[in-house]
Design a binder for these strands. Sequence first.
DNA 1: TTAAGTGCAAATATTTTGCTGTCAC
DNA 2: GTGACAGCAAAATATTTGCACTTAA
Lengths: 150, 150
Amino acid sequence: MPLPQTEMPGRLQSYCAERGIRMTQQRRAILSVMETAKKHLDAAQLLRKAQRLDASVDRSTVYRTLQMLKRQGLVDELDLMHIHGEGHYYERKLNRDHIHMACLRCGKIMEFVSDVFDKLKRQVERDCNFQIVVSRLEIGGYCNACRAAK
Amino acid sequence: MPLPQTEMPGRLQSYCAERGIRMTQQRRAILSVMETAKKHLDAAQLLRKAQRLDASVDRSTVYRTLQMLKRQGLVDELDLMHIHGEGHYYERKLNRDHIHMACLRCGKIMEFVSDVFDKLKRQVERDCNFQIVVSRLEIGGYCNACRAAK
DNA sequence: TTAAGTGCAAATATTTTGCTGTCAC
DNA sequence: GTGACAGCAAAATATTTGCACTTAA
């Protein structure tokens, strides 16, 4: 039986509990949406989905919760090359960093894990005497299908 | 006598001329600021500096010119890990892509060129069948001085 | 009990757009 | 001359904040 590829739902809440972060009904709704999201969500989508679980959730609570999660290093903030406007997208941080590729034609988002990326980060830490906390590699271009269709 | 490390001022205007892009007094002011900028500028700073060269330059012209330069692949848009708010920073694209590192404590921005980065991009193109147009690697963390001071 | 969190409304910040007039080619 | 570009003002978008009330621990 294969291991699950992502962590089990509920882990974000466990992390918060471990770190002594107060848990409210609203935060539970927001974290639950983040846990189960199948794609990258922006703040407005996150708000809408969280309100389905708890209608009282307010826009500012979403932003405040996102700030908390970023500070805790539990979520990453992405631009996805601004393919759809100027907003940001959020995803829970998993064990291994990955690269995001956005197709400039069809808008598809792809992810890629690479040892070379890990190696590059180690090189930066060593050669620049820089302690990495968070990193983001985003690439815009054309996916296989769109490249052929052009 | 060492070669200059960046291209000579005026090159952005030459590129535009080569590509048949209409040159106005306002665009000349904006391009000139970008050419000679010593650090990464956001749209507001770019506007202020351009207005010193041509007081008539309007905010919307700055944004419209930036869009044109991005489309032409002549400038890159950066977040610098949102160290100072949600805006974007712009820099003219030089021959070789580089990584941006932002110190989360002192706000210093550092740049780094790496063969490993080039190799990673080639790997993405090959392994993902993805044709890269633009890429952006930004890293947040602690610079050498701030790491010691913490 | 009480510090932290929340909703609400308003403010702020950033970027875009419609329109009319101007200018580069 | 004319189509691309400009300024201006207003709208659209995205995020933050002040304040009084609520709630988790």
